[in-house]
Amino acid sequence: MVAQRPSVRHFYRSMKDFQPLDKSCSSCAIVSSSGQLLGKGAGKEIDNASCVLRMNTAPVTGFEEDVGARTTLRILCFISVKALQKEGNGYLLGPSRPETVLFWGLNQEKHKSAKVIAEEVFQKYIDSVDFYSQTQEGELEAGRVFMNETGFQRADTNTWLSTGWFTIMLALDMCREIKIYGMVPEEYCKTHQKEPTKYHYYQKNQSPTECGYYASHEASRKGGHRFITEKAVFAKWAKKFNISLHHPEWDLDNVNLSKPIDTPFAHRQVVLQKERQRWKHTMNILFKVIAVIAALICSMCPRYLLISL
């Protein structure tokens, strides 16, 4: 478990002069992209924070009453750079433009094309917004934190960390007080499986639903986001550090900081680990049996040679 707030700002480097991010806020509002925010009227409260953090390409225009109008930082994954390039004026100009854009995931070899697009966006809007890109060491640190919190390696379990994971890690380093809006707790979807809440508040179609999308990714073996598991970690961080969660409100009284994570993803990994251990034990016994049989055969070889002579 994270013993103290992580130090991650230095992993974000200016795309202009490679200087590390040097930003701090007395209070931060992290605005999720969830449909939970629709109709809640949290916009004014969000805008009252000293810093407002938004993720990927979640829009502001048309949703101000529920999600606020200000943007201090916008954190984007490598997948979102194409949408940012296409709708750059809408996101990076005008009253809701961010002061700073932070990219993560650009420095992997397989994401070279996303890095090229991000560079083009940076050059086009260099006079309007400050752009930063996370180093590869920053991604590795995020994976180490996931391992420390869950006991499972990100890569070995085909886990994709969410932009929310990187955003909250950054906020822990940057903000004295943190309020998160529109994020459901770990247990929420157990009792709201059929709730029609949209995964993203701005999606035109009703599908995918939030809980349906979470469940499919949590159970995926081929690779996926572990949203429910991340929220189990966030609950511990919220209890330990100065974090409150709203719309819906989180009850942190029963959060046990010393209890291992027990989500569908974590449970499956424990089962798989036991299966691998049993398989390894079985193979060890088999190899020992084969070795004994081979030794017996070899001990009888001279007799057969004498008989044949």
Score class of each variant (00 low, 15 high):
residue 250 W to A: 04
residue 215 A to T: 15
residue 183 M to T: 13
residue 16 K to Y: 06
residue 213 Y to M: 15
residue 225 H to N: 15
residue 40 K to E: 03
residue 268 R to L: 12
residue 15 M to S: 07
residue 237 W to D: 02
residue 129 V to W: 03
residue 212 G to C: 14
residue 135 T to W: 10
residue 110 K to P: 00
residue 201 Y to N: 04
residue 272 L to F: 10
residue 134 Q to N: 08
residue 38 L to R: 05
residue 73 L to W: 04
residue 256 N to A: 15
residue 63 F to H: 15
residue 9 R to G: 03
residue 255 V to W: 08
residue 126 I to V: 10
residue 306 L to S: 14
residue 266 A to L: 08
residue 118 A to T: 03
residue 73 L to Q: 04
residue 226 R to E: 05
residue 248 P to T: 04
residue 222 K to T: 14
residue 141 E to R: 09
residue 10 H to T: 00
residue 306 L to M: 14
residue 197 T to F: 05
residue 112 K to R: 13
residue 63 F to D: 06
residue 91 Y to E: 02
residue 209 T to R: 09
residue 276 R to S: 10
residue 152 F to C: 00
residue 65 E to Q: 14
residue 260 P to H: 06
residue 177 E to M: 08
residue 236 K to E: 00
residue 250 W to P: 03
residue 247 H to S: 13
residue 280 K to E: 09
residue 116 V to R: 08
residue 104 W to H: 15
residue 260 P to C: 05
residue 67 V to W: 02
residue 152 F to P: 01
residue 180 I to Q: 02
residue 179 K to E: 05
residue 208 P to H: 14
residue 113 S to E: 00
residue 97 R to V: 07
residue 21 L to Q: 07
residue 50 S to C: 12
residue 239 K to I: 15
residue 289 V to G: 09
residue 51 C to E: 04
residue 136 Q to A: 08
residue 5 R to W: 00
residue 133 S to A: 11
residue 13 R to W: 03
residue 42 A to M: 12
residue 93 L to D: 03
residue 20 P to T: 03
residue 214 Y to C: 15
residue 20 P to Q: 05
residue 266 A to R: 00
residue 130 D to C: 01
residue 241 F to D: 05
residue 51 C to L: 07
residue 161 L to T: 07
residue 98 P to S: 04
residue 83 A to D: 09
residue 265 F to Q: 02
residue 1 M to N: 11
residue 193 Q to D: 00
residue 145 V to K: 03
residue 58 A to S: 15
residue 66 D to E: 02
residue 21 L to H: 00
residue 174 M to T: 12
residue 231 K to T: 12
residue 172 L to W: 08
residue 106 L to A: 02
residue 281 H to R: 11
residue 196 P to Q: 09
residue 70 R to S: 11
residue 124 K to E: 02
residue 254 N to V: 10
residue 33 S to G: 13
residue 164 G to P: 06
residue 234 F to G: 00
residue 246 H to C: 04
residue 271 V to H: 14
residue 104 W to R: 09
residue 118 A to F: 05
residue 103 F to N: 03
residue 196 P to Y: 08
residue 93 L to N: 06
residue 225 H to S: 15
residue 68 G to S: 07
residue 180 I to H: 02
residue 296 L to H: 04
residue 54 R to V: 08
residue 55 M to V: 15
residue 11 F to Y: 14
residue 253 D to V: 09
residue 234 F to T: 05
residue 80 S to E: 06
residue 224 G to H: 12
residue 307 I to Y: 14
residue 229 T to M: 02
residue 241 F to Y: 13
residue 80 S to C: 06
residue 84 L to V: 04
residue 4 Q to L: 07
residue 100 T to N: 06
residue 132 Y to Q: 07
residue 59 P to F: 09
residue 66 D to V: 04
residue 264 P to A: 12
residue 82 K to M: 05
residue 303 R to V: 15
residue 70 R to N: 15
residue 34 S to T: 11
residue 122 F to V: 01
residue 72 T to W: 06
residue 26 S to A: 00
residue 17 D to S: 00
residue 9 R to C: 09
residue 165 W to V: 07
residue 208 P to L: 13
residue 74 R to L: 12
residue 49 A to G: 12
residue 115 K to V: 01
residue 137 E to L: 13
residue 121 V to P: 00
residue 247 H to I: 09
residue 220 S to F: 10
residue 40 K to T: 12
residue 126 I to H: 04
residue 77 C to T: 10
residue 43 G to L: 00
residue 80 S to A: 14
residue 226 R to T: 12
residue 55 M to H: 05
residue 78 F to R: 08
residue 281 H to P: 04
residue 142 A to H: 03
residue 238 A to I: 09
